[in-house]
Amino acid sequence: MIHRILNHSVDKKGHVHYLIKWRDLPYDQASWESEDVEIQDYDLFKQSYWNHR
């Protein structure tokens, strides 16, 4: 379960990846995930991330 999205990056092919802080895990366990991976409520977290940038 996502706690929040910390950052994003765009690779050379134009694909967006998000650095995800996972609920109940420390920050050093955050991981980069592609924008099209199937994660519960991912779209809501991405929308919230962009609304607050």
Rank of each mutant, 00 (worst) to 15 (best):
F45Y: 13
S31K: 03
K46H: 01
F45C: 09
N51Q: 14
V16L: 12
N7R: 09
K13C: 09
D41G: 09
W32C: 03
N51G: 11
Y27N: 14
S48K: 14
D28F: 06
G14I: 05
D24A: 08
I2C: 05
S34H: 15
H17N: 13
Q29T: 04
Q29S: 09
K46G: 02
Q29I: 00
Y18T: 00
N7A: 13
S9K: 15
Y49A: 03
Q29D: 08
V16F: 08
Q47H: 13
M1L: 09
H3M: 07
H52I: 09
Y49S: 00
D11A: 05
R4L: 10
D11H: 01
W22M: 07
N7E: 09
N51Y: 09
K13R: 10
Y49C: 00
Y27W: 11
I39L: 14
H17D: 07
Q29F: 05
W32I: 04
V10W: 06
D11T: 06
D11C: 08
K46F: 01
D43R: 06
K13E: 13
L19Q: 00
S31I: 04
L25G: 08
E35F: 00
H52V: 14
L25I: 08
S31G: 01
Q47C: 07
P26E: 06
Y49R: 00
N51K: 11
Y49K: 05
R23T: 11
D41T: 01
E38L: 10
S34Y: 04
L25D: 07
L44G: 08
Y27D: 15
A30S: 09
M1K: 15
L19E: 03
Q40R: 11
I5M: 04
V16H: 09
P26M: 03
R53K: 10
K13L: 08
V10D: 05
K13S: 12
M1C: 10
E33I: 15
Y42C: 10
G14L: 03
I2N: 04
H52A: 13
K21S: 08
W22T: 01
H8F: 01
I2T: 05
I2Y: 01
D41W: 06
Y18H: 04
H8E: 05
H8W: 01
I20L: 05
G14A: 01
I5E: 00
V10M: 07
H15D: 06
K12P: 13
I39A: 02
Q40M: 11
L19W: 01
I39D: 00
R23S: 10
Q40D: 13
F45W: 09
K46V: 09
L44M: 15
V10N: 04
W50K: 06
H15E: 12
W50R: 04
D28C: 13
D24M: 06
H8M: 02
K13W: 07
D24Y: 06
K21Y: 08
L6R: 02
F45G: 02
D41M: 03
V10T: 12
D28K: 12
F45T: 05
I39G: 02
H3G: 14
W22D: 04
F45D: 06
N51E: 15
M1Q: 05
S9H: 13
I5C: 00
Q40C: 13
N7P: 01
P26A: 04
H15T: 14
W50Y: 06
D41R: 01
